[in-house]
């Protein structure tokens, strides 16, 4: 099982255990998550709106300042404002997360569709291939890719995308197989539609919504992995205002300047919780719609 499949399983259970037909009002957690998501999207799209400063602007003489009114989250070793850097860093994290998810999901769709639609030989081959990939648990596959192509944001994004792909592929395959055996698809088969017509007209529309949920849940995972790679010095390079890279720089000064690593980490956690809560909420709503 992959991290993604666990997330999907949890979301699935949460959705099943909630009672159908319960009031559609928005819960407190969903409300907070919605506001946070809005905040993060604004910060990613128009960071200047919320933090007018320069995320790379140095001011050596005001280095290592603890949180004050002037610097809400303190300053780093070169006197850069951490709040400004975190807000400007949102676009990196969300973009990396989205891009990695797109790569993983895209590959997952291709592999999953091949396995789910093309008969036993292809299914067997793809499954063996996925099994091999699953033998590199967690970050191991991403680490291998990074070693080959060298560190950097682009490689890290691709590495995370590739290492999440097997998870997506397996879920999509399972979904295709279950949709394929539903009554209306069987009816369409009886009516003489070709395999690909059925795929486009009937199966894909029925798997799209779950895919959206899956992507929302997966983006959180992708962000953590990308940040972990940056933290290990293999992703975004300093002085880029990427959260994992900021945390990595902060680790050196952890005994004297805790704020340098606390706040970027806090934003990573908030982003992931937001993605999880929203993903599950959408999941539940779509099932009960």
């Amino acid at each position: 099982m992959s991290d993604l499949e666990v997330q999907a399983e949890l979301s699935d259970r949460a959705a099943r255990s909630s009672q159908p037909g319960r009031p559609r009002r928005i819960g407190a957690a969903e409300g907070v998550a919605g506001v946070l998501a809005l905040f993060l999207v604004v910060a990613a799209a128009w960071p200047q709106l919320l933090a007018p400063g320069d995320p790379l602007g140095i001011d050596p003489l005001s280095a290592f300042q603890p949180p004050t009114l002037a610097h809400g989250f303190g300053t780093d070793e070169s006197g850069r404002d951490i709040y400004t850097r975190i807000l400007h860093g949102t676009q990196y994290s969300l973009l990396i997360g989205a891009a990695a998810t797109a790569i993983g999901l895209g590959l997952g769709i291709v592999l999953g569709t091949l396995a789910g639609m093309l008969g036993r030989v292809v299914d067997f081959t793809v499954n063996r291939f996925l099994e091999v990939l699953f033998a590199f648990p967690g970050l191991l596959l991403a680490l291998l890719i990074i070693v080959i192509y060298g560190p950097g944001v682009v490689t890290a994004t691709i590495a995370v995308g590739l290492s999440t792909a097997p998870g997506y592929a397996r879920i999509i395959r399972a979904q295709l197989i279950s949709v394929r055996s539903t009554a209306f698809v069987e009816a369409a088969t009886v009516l003489g539609r070709t395999r690909w017509q059925i795929l486009l007209r009937h199966i894909l529309p029925n798997t799209l919504a779950p895919l959206f949920v899956l992507a929302t849940l997966g983006i959180g995972q992708a962000i953590v992995w990308a940040a972990t790679l940056s933290y290990l010095g293999l992703g975004a390079e300093p002085p880029t205002a990427e959260w994992g890279a900021m945390l990595s720089a902060g680790r050196t000064y952890i005994t004297s300047a805790w704020w340098m690593s606390f706040f970027p980490g806090l934003f990573i956690v908030l982003t992931i919780v937001t993605a999880t809560v929203l993903g599950r909420s959408i999941d539940r709503r779509m099932r009960h719609a």
């Binding site: 957690a29 959180g220 953590v224 940040a227 972990t228 933290y231 994992g244 945390l247 902060g250 680790r251 952890i254 005994t255 805790w258 690593s261 606390f262 980490g265 990573i268 956690v269 992931i272 919780v273 999880t276 809560v277």
Partner: peptide, 24 residues
């Protein structure tokens, strides 16, 4: 809520936070 937040904690952040609080 606790479970959702706990599941979202990245190891590297949790480790450094625990070091700050419990060691330093």
């Amino acid at each position: 809520g606790l479970e959702t937040v706990a599941a979202a904690l990245p190891h590297f952040w949790l480790a450094t936070s625990l070091i700050v609080v419990f060691s330093i």
